[in-house]
Design a protein around this nucleic acid. Structure first.
Lengths: 221, 221
DNA sequence: TAGATTGTTAATCGATTAACAATC
DNA sequence: TAGATTGTTAATCGATTAACAATC
């Protein structure tokens, strides 16, 4: 009775932040109602997809002809994405990327709070970055427990990634957000999200080369 | 006659860097042959998917029982992904993230070379980051032409993204790698790749919350 | 040979897109 | 009312997975 009968697809969850960003912008611009065709125009996402997504995301039914009440829609997207409840995370590896993530102020908007960073460089241990304390690796287990951190953000060189992930999981972390360019094994009950820049760069490059080939062919004709 | 009859799926291209990383590692570890089941075990990707992918990626047929000759496989993946030919890029917005990307040494491996950075902060204009010069925005068009940059990496606050993308495209850029958390419009012949951290974070968080719910239900029983 | 793997065709699955009735 | 949009069911599309013959 309690479980939702409709299955939520991965791609839908992926699109939720897009819908939230757009709806917020439209509310800021004074919109009272927001329609699926409107979002489709802005994002390029097929209008049928948007309609279906919104009907799954929002509890309040939409208004034929008018669309959905804008502020209600924003609230319901927030609720669906569980963005209002902050989850604590710790970040392992304060290199260039780790530093950038520690300094990024936008995560709170998506329900993430980075509580602390970890590194093995004595020069930065004990300092703070954007107010977040940097600890030595030996403190990992203790701080994870103290902060109740559920997510570990991995921004270390690939050689160290697996070992540190294992430590973090042993200390109670329930999800891994992996920025290290390597494969990582986690137990079944731990969520693993890979942020693979190589993959998206690769896709970009491939499409670029493909479109270049096409352009050449077009010129020849 | 010249065009490939088999269509290459987006997801396959996305997996190519994974195959490359793994095969390189196996070669380093002394492997003479690499098999699909082996890669499947390491990555968790379904073995049928790996088999099919590899047969599309590699020209040389595999060896029943033995697998594929390891070094040949690495070469053919490199060739498929066009990783050996460097493409020039410029990076717009030298904030924390922009700085991290400028400092990242791994891009060369995937065929990307960042030739220059752009920012409006006079304090960093004229300096170099990891050897890459930082210019003012007014130099955008000139430098894009001089370096023959085909890719613009966008790491500016969302308010400025669209405008700068338009400039870059006007100057001849053929692809946009967008890290700004906003939607961007590009002409049909320009490749757009969004790096949406909010989306993957959102998916991570959603899965985390879902697994937590599941755990609670399991406990109750 | 037996066994493992390749390569390819067929079946399944899931997501997107199309179609259409309901309704303000 | 006419027109635009919602919500939902059906059709299509594409990717994954399964099945199986070929082969070293």
């Amino acid at each position: 009775m309690n479980t939702k009968p409709k299955s939520i697809s991965k791609n839908l969850v992926y699109r939720v932040p897009i819908y939230l960003t757009i709806s917020r912008r439209l509310v800021d611009e004074g919109a009272k109602y927001i329609t699926a065709p409107q979002i489709s125009d802005i994002t390029g996402i097929n209008v049928e997809t948007v309609k279906k997504d919104l009907s799954q995301i929002c509890k309040t039914p939409g208004n034929p002809k008018l669309g959905r009440e804008a502020t209600t829609m924003v609230e319901e997207i927030l609720e669906f994405g569980v963005y209002t409840k902050l989850t604590n995370a710790i970040l392992i590896g304060v290199g260039h990327l780790g530093r950038a993530l520690l300094n990024y102020s936008g995560f709170a908007e998506w329900g993430l709070h980075i509580a602390a960073g970890f590194d093995r460089d004595p020069k930065i241990i004990g300092t703070k970055i954007d107010g977040k304390p940097i600890y030595e690796m030996d403190d990992l287990s203790r701080i994870i427990k103290e902060t109740d951190a559920e997510i570990a953000i991995i921004t270390v060189p690939k050689e160290y990634a697996q070992q540190l992930v294992d430590f973090a999981i042993a200390a109670g972390v329930k999800a891994i957000w992996n920025f290290a360019p390597t494969h990582i094994n986690v137990p079944d009950d731990v969520i693993l999200q890979n942020e693979n820049m190589a993959s998206s760069l690769s896709l970009l490059n491939y499409n670029l080369k493909a479109s270049k080939r096409k352009r050449k062919v077009a010129k020849k004709r």
